[in-house]
Structure formats: C-alpha cells, structure tokens
Simulated assay, not measured.
Amino acid sequence: MKITYEEFSPSADLAPYVECYWVHSFTGESGEDSPVQRCLPLGMVEVIIHPDENISDLLTEEQWQQLPRSFFHGIYNNPVYWKIKSNARLFGIRFKPETFSTLFNVPAASLYCHFVSLETFLGREVSGLHRPLYGIKDIAAMVAHCDGFLSKRLADLELQHNYITEAADIIRHTKGNISIEEVSNSISVSMRQLQRSFKENLGTTPKGYLRIIRFRNAFSALESEHEWADITYDLGYADQAHFIREFREFAGDTPNSIIRNAENIRKKPFSFTDSIFL
C-alpha cells in the first residue's frame, strides 16, 4: 500500500486560527487494510473529513469502531490508533485550540480527549464545510472551499484578542521550555486565573498543554535525528530519564522503539509544521 501525506497553508487571514490543512492518502489493492496508524498528540484541535467512501476505524478499548465521516477531535494526551481501507483519503483542518472557540463559539475543552461528528456537535450550520467535499478529487479545490467557508465565518465575528491566546502562543514559541510562572508573568495574569481559564477553554491545564507541546517538539527533533542529550537540554527536561518517561507517556512507546519500528508500523502518520515553533 502506498501512503502519502501533504500539508497546505491557510490564507493569511486564517493563519492565526488554522495551522494547516492536510491530506493523508492510502492507495492499494481493493479491500486492503492500511497498517495500523499511530497518531501522536499535537496539542491542536482538528476537523477530519473522509471525502471518499471508505471510512477509518479507531481502536477503542481493544475493539475497532468506525469513525464518523466528518468529525471534530480535541486536544488529546495519548496516542490514538486507527486504520483504513485502501483507495481512501483523510482531509484535515488543524486549528490552534485557543482560537477554536472564536470560530465555532464553543470551547475546545468540550472536545478534550474526545471526538464527535460535526453535525452532532454544531448542527446543520456546519454542513456547508464538509458536505461539499464528499467525492471531490481536486485537493486544491478542497483547500479553497475550506478557506472560503472559514474566512466568511471569521468575517462575521467580532474578534477579541485575549490572554489565553497570548499564553498558548508563548508556550508554542518556547517549544514548551518555559515555566508556567514565566508565562503568567509575561501576560500579567495570576497563575490561578491562568489555570482556571486554560481548563475551561482548552480542557487541560497550562502545564498539561506545555508538556504536550514539549513532547511534540521532542518528537520532531528525534525525527530529525537529533541526539537525545541535545533534546533533553534544549527542551528543558530534567535529565534523559525524564525525557524518556515523558516521551513514553505521550507516544505509547520508547524513543528507540519509535525509531526502530517507524517504517514498518507507520508510527509517524503526520509530518510536523514547524513554522509556529520558531
């Protein structure tokens, strides 16, 4: 089976809200199952759409469960395992979680470690986003459609910049190598207020989000064949034992095992857009 993955940038006006669009394609013999895919925590909220007839299955409590054709998923803190039949694609929209509520008027906290079909979650008002994509083969047209839908939604909103946005930006730009006290001081908000607001809006604490973002950068560095000692130091882990323990918690496996088995069992279904991690 041939598996490909591509990412596409949103329009400039959507860049503060959307990290990227992506397409994950599976091409093979009719009825062929993909290798089991492991999706690692990215610290983002996503819309995932199956534009073709085949729909992926999620491993839940040791049983395979078919996913909705179009769904939201929130921030998650552990690996997710799934597979799909050949000749199918997944189309995704990756949102920055602190701005998700601006676009959809619901907090990302309601999706934490959870997924739900688009229309179950938001009703028919969101049908114009996903239904026109069913059956479309032209990826550029899919991206253009979503850009148009989300840009129109953005234009109809009264935008407000808030300290949650600032805090999340700081955590991402420091690659998670910062204390929550430093984040709190940077935005002039008490740690207690920051803790409460993160939990209410993102579903996790500032520390929880920081750990996910640090893991994401650790994985990206590991994928680029950086030395463990450098990753440990650059991202502020206490020592290599701390790095390995945190990595295993979020990846479900050790760094060595991820490297050794990545190609065989598709441990790395997603590439990483590093533009927000400067």
Results as ranks from 00 to 15, higher is better:
residue 1 M to C: 08
residue 4 T to H: 08
residue 10 P to G: 08
residue 12 A to M: 03
residue 14 L to I: 03
residue 15 A to T: 11
residue 17 Y to E: 02
residue 19 E to M: 08
residue 26 F to L: 09
residue 33 D to V: 00
residue 33 D to R: 13
residue 36 V to Y: 00
residue 41 P to H: 04
residue 43 G to Y: 05
residue 46 E to Q: 10
residue 46 E to P: 01
residue 47 V to I: 15
residue 47 V to Y: 08
residue 60 T to G: 00
residue 69 R to N: 02
residue 78 N to P: 00
residue 79 P to Q: 07
residue 81 Y to L: 08
residue 82 W to F: 11
residue 83 K to N: 11
residue 88 A to C: 03
residue 92 G to D: 10
residue 93 I to K: 01
residue 112 Y to C: 12
residue 116 V to C: 13
residue 121 F to V: 00
residue 121 F to M: 12
residue 127 S to N: 14
residue 134 Y to P: 03
residue 140 A to N: 15
residue 141 A to D: 07
residue 144 A to T: 11
residue 147 D to T: 09
residue 152 K to H: 14
residue 157 L to P: 00
residue 158 E to H: 14
residue 159 L to G: 05
residue 168 A to N: 05
residue 183 V to Y: 06
residue 192 R to I: 13
residue 195 Q to S: 14
residue 198 F to M: 05
residue 202 L to V: 10
residue 203 G to W: 03
residue 203 G to R: 02
residue 206 P to G: 07
residue 213 I to H: 09
residue 217 N to M: 14
residue 218 A to D: 06
residue 221 A to I: 01
residue 221 A to R: 03
residue 225 E to S: 10
residue 228 W to S: 08
residue 229 A to V: 10
residue 231 I to H: 08
residue 233 Y to S: 12
residue 235 L to M: 09
residue 236 G to F: 05
residue 237 Y to T: 04
residue 240 Q to D: 14
residue 241 A to Q: 13
residue 244 I to T: 13
residue 249 E to R: 11
residue 250 F to N: 01
residue 252 G to S: 06
residue 252 G to Y: 06
residue 252 G to R: 07
residue 258 I to Y: 12
residue 262 A to C: 04
residue 266 R to G: 13
residue 271 S to R: 14
residue 274 D to K: 15
